[in-house]
Simulated assay, not measured.
Amino acid sequence: MKSNSQPIKLFLVVAFSCTSLLVSLIPVLAKPTLGSSLSDAYGGLRLRSHPKTTLAQATIFNQPTLPPGPPPGGRVRGGAKRGPGCELTKLDLTALVPFTQEANSVINVWGQTTEERPSWFFYVPYTKDYPYAVEFVLQDQDSNEIYQKAIALPDKPGVIRVSLPSTAPALAVDKQYHWFFTINCDKEENSPPTFVQGVIQRVELNPATVKELQTTEPLKRYAIYAQNGIWYEALTILAQLRQKNPQDAALQAEWRNLLSSIRLDDIAAEPILSDKP
């Protein structure tokens, strides 16, 4: 029996070691990281995450504190009213931007950007079939108008993008700007328009973060911006990725997570209609 016992023990030891190694590798192989490819567009292997894994790794948007000085105020939803104004819709005109509600019910709509000429996103419930006049206006902190643009209503309700063009003045660092998105539904202008409004401020990131942003792929850039409280770039990058990969379940989950983090869950399922500057 002695001649047989040693080979059997050796076999059991080797088998146990291999099994332990395989078990230790399974979590590593099964757990996609934020920098991993979530879509063929990023190159390499396509990872199909289980929904629980996606939620467990969802990027957190770190909403910054309000800037010093008077509160920015604002309006994140523009509800239509009965009468000669805008037709009632299932969802209101909505600005895709963070907001806080104070104890006195005052709403503050405020977000940061690092771009000289950022983009804004709005959910628009009306289509080009309505004869409504739509306008986007940007003012400096002294209420001087620095940009104004008439906006064409889309073919169907959904999220549209409005970008500051190269012909418009660049946003200055550490300055606050007021933006307004207005839909005037009454040709006679006897009724007030439906509108949303808020404040945007351009800030600068530290050099190490800027360098990292320059050398990483889009999904990781999105995470860096979100973690640093830079709303406008985080939203723009994620919207662009979703448009390029509309069937990507991981990106859809990330979009829902981002909008849910600012309490706009109801807008998360609406289509993104345009990615044109």
Rank of each mutant, 00 (worst) to 15 (best):
P7M: 01
L251D: 06
K2I: 12
I262V: 14
S36D: 07
D186W: 08
F99G: 13
P154M: 01
R256S: 04
A170S: 10
P64I: 12
I230P: 03
A168W: 15
P68M: 06
L241G: 07
G44E: 13
A30Y: 09
A249V: 05
L88S: 14
K2L: 14
L153S: 03
G79R: 13
L91S: 08
P27R: 01
I146K: 00
Y126D: 01
A41P: 06
P157T: 13
V162E: 09
R221L: 01
T114D: 04
S261T: 05
T89C: 10
K244Q: 14
K2Q: 13
T65F: 11
E116C: 01
L251N: 02
P27C: 05
Y222I: 06
L259P: 09
N4T: 12
F61R: 00
R77C: 04
D265Y: 10
V162K: 03
A269Y: 00
R48C: 11
T182Y: 00
F122V: 07
K81P: 10
D140L: 05
A56N: 12
L153M: 04
S166W: 15
R263H: 10
E270K: 01
F121I: 05
E189H: 09
I230C: 06
E116A: 10
G111I: 08
Q227V: 02
R82D: 10
W120S: 00
Y130E: 14
T167H: 15
P27N: 07
V28M: 02
L21F: 05
R48E: 15
